[in-house]
Amino acid sequence: MLALYLRDLRLGIRAGGGALTGVIFFLAVIATIPFGVGPDLNLLARIGPAILWIGALLASLLGLDRLFQAEREDGSLDLLVLNRDRHMLAFTVFVKCLAHWTVSVLPLVVASPLLGLFMNMNPTGIGATALTLLVGTPAITFIGAAGAAVAVALPRGGLLISVLVLPITIPVLIFGVSASYGAVNDPDPFFQPFLILAALTLFLAVVGPVAAALALRHSGD
């Protein structure tokens, strides 16, 4: 399983892996917001966490369609499914999700403090947003894997995956943003939404791969 993780990591980093697409998209979204909203620093600081979260959410949905499609095109998916007695297919999917998250989504989390400065956020807010992104974005990848598995046979499945997955990621967005606000605005709680966010990630870490494995198992043609 470590072999699969390392292979996906290598593939993501090498040329054509598309690991940086998400970060560049994220950067483009966040960098244009201050121009659109105008020079109202208080307003920017107030909407900062929400904008960062929406940007990260959309950016992390970008590369998901290649998660299984690339495997399917070169025939690797057949062999991954074939070895389901040695490696439980849901666990194989889980490891692929982790590798995808490490390569494509973790850079978003790393970039978010810098982009937080663009939004005139204070250090606490930046820290809280980065932390909630770190905890919350795996959930998006896990449930996105289920969408990617359903759309694996569709040649232009990328947009379909986003549409399929977006409604399920809304709770993650809500609790991620409310935890970020909770850290900055005094009466609002930080820990309650943060813990629900962590619970969502753990829940989807189980449900997403199992659903994806089921879809892959029956996508044979």
């Binding site: 593939l11 090498r14 070169d74 062999l79 040695r86």
Partner: peptide, 30 residues
């Protein structure tokens, strides 16, 4: 499923990795 090798029309190898890296991966996985 556990007893068979399947060699289809596609080679199930990644073009971005070297031949050895591909084979090492499949050996570790299978």
């Amino acid at each position: 499923a556990s007893a068979c090798h399947y060699l289809g029309h596609q080679n199930a190898m990644k073009t971005a990795l070297t031949v050895t890296e591909n084979l090492v991966f499949w050996q570790q996985f299978c």
